[in-house]
Nucleic acid binder design. Structure first.
Length: 377
DNA sequence: AATTCGGGGAG
DNA sequence: CTCCCAGAATT
């Protein structure tokens, strides 16, 4: 193997690197936050989230002292919400175990939940200049082109080979710049489509450039299509408030808020479109009997079923339909009906929220879409 | 080894 | 539309 000209890469990196907020520091905590946010998320998306997050939680202690709820609120819209929970848990773990001193090497960093091989290597190499290679999507693409790697880059064999290769070529000085250089190269020059080979500092090392076929790499098998589902949703309004429900602590959109409803298979969509089945859904979601009669009355008036509005996740696709039930259309002595009932609602994770608060809480984008649509009238 | 975790940028 | 993104944990 010919190898990578690491000094040329590092020199290139220091000339052209983008001016990013997390490159102004070598604080391991700050690097940690940035690396977690950058998991499966593009730089341009992360920047505003990172700035807000670091302003609110400037150090490990600020984060460790916070409520999980507030961390999720700041994470809203960024996706992969378990990252936020684990970052928060990790901060508390470090504060508790070592009085807030970050683990100072790759192996120790790995003991933090939510810190995997990539993130541990990134923090160790950038903050501590430890000679450990990172491997992310950028690095896989760059290496697959340099080596003309014909196997699926997602396979374990590929990963092992790339890591062994990188261990050989990563330099002892400025390993962090080498790692960031590889990623910067993938992000700005060795891009998935139309790579800018004329700008590449590793052009002479690149077998696929020599043979003129960089665009055929990396080899990977095509992805599965998202599973189709639909999502009937109840919008209950009452005196300027809307009924929200806390999602389960695991799985999709864990610990976030939603409008009551549940995911179902597509075949049952028609019944909901026809206005049937909504009361069954309601009782399924809201065991508290307080509003049963009112909801029955409102549903008997055949409220129009709105939607569908489509929201796509990585491997699931929701067709969302919803009905709006304004309790004020039935009640005039409303304060009386609600008095003393909130405690019962709480057992279902339910909560009346001021409409004004909706843009502050951790409400997933899927439900923001519904609310936005609903406001347009 | 394969699945499950979001949401948005770019072409 | 499709593909991909400074991945990690679970099964």
């Amino acid at each position: 193997m010919s190898g990578i000209n690491s000094s040329k890469l590092i020199q290139w990196f220091n000339q052209v690197k983008r001016d990013l907020p997390w490159r102004k520091t070598k604080e391991p905590y700050a690097i940690w936050v940035s690396e977690v946010m950058l998991q499966q998320t593009q730089v341009i998306t992360v920047i505003p989230y990172y700035l807000r997050f670091m302003k609110r939680f400037p150090d490990l202690f600020a984060l460790a002292e916070a409520e999980q709820e507030e961390v999720l609120e700041l994470w809203r819209g960024l996706g992969y919400y378990s990252r936020a929970r684990r970052l928060w848990e990790g901060a508390r773990y470090v504060v508790q175990m070592t009085e807030g001193r970050m683990p100072e090497n790759y192996d120790a960093l790995l003991t933090i939940k939510g810190v995997g091989e990539y993130t541990a290597a990134a923090i160790a190499s950038i903050a501590y200049e430890e000679r450990v290679p990172v491997m992310d999507g950028n690095v896989k693409r760059v290496l697959s082109r340099i080596l003309r790697w014909e196997e699926d880059v997602e396979k374990a064999r590929s990963r092992r080979f790339f890591l062994e290769y990188l261990k050989e070529v990563i330099p002892g000085d400025c390993p962090g710049d080498f790692n960031q250089g590889m990623m910067e190269l993938g992000a700005t020059v060795c891009t998935p489509k139309n790579p800018r080979c004329e700008q590449c500092p590793l052009q002479e090392d690149c077998e696929s450039f020599a043979l003129g076929d960089p665009q055929v790499y990396p080899v990977k098998k095509s992805k599965e299509k998202p599973t189709e589902a639909f999502r009937p949703t109840l919008i209950l309004l009452h005196r300027g408030q809307v009924l929200l429900k806390k999602r389960p602590t695991t799985g999709l959109l864990a610990n976030l808020w939603e409008f009551p409803g549940e995911e179902m298979m597509i075949p049952s969509l028609e019944k909901f479109r026809e206005g049937k089945e909504w009361y069954g859904l309601y009782k399924n979601q809201i065991s508290d009997p307080t509003y049963d009669e009112i909801v029955k009355e409102l549903l008997s008036r055949n409220p129009s079923v709105k939607g569908p509005l489509v929201h796509t996740f990585s491997h699931r696709r929701w067709q969302m339909v919803w009905v709006v039930l304004d309790l004020d259309d039935v009640i005039d002595k409303s304060s009386e009906v609600r008095a003393g009932k909130d405690s019962q609602l709480k057992e279902d994770g339910l909560c009346w929220m001021d409409v004004k608060e909706l843009d502050r809480i951790a409400l997933p984008v899927a439900f923001q879409k519904i609310w936005t649509k609903l406001q347009e009238r």
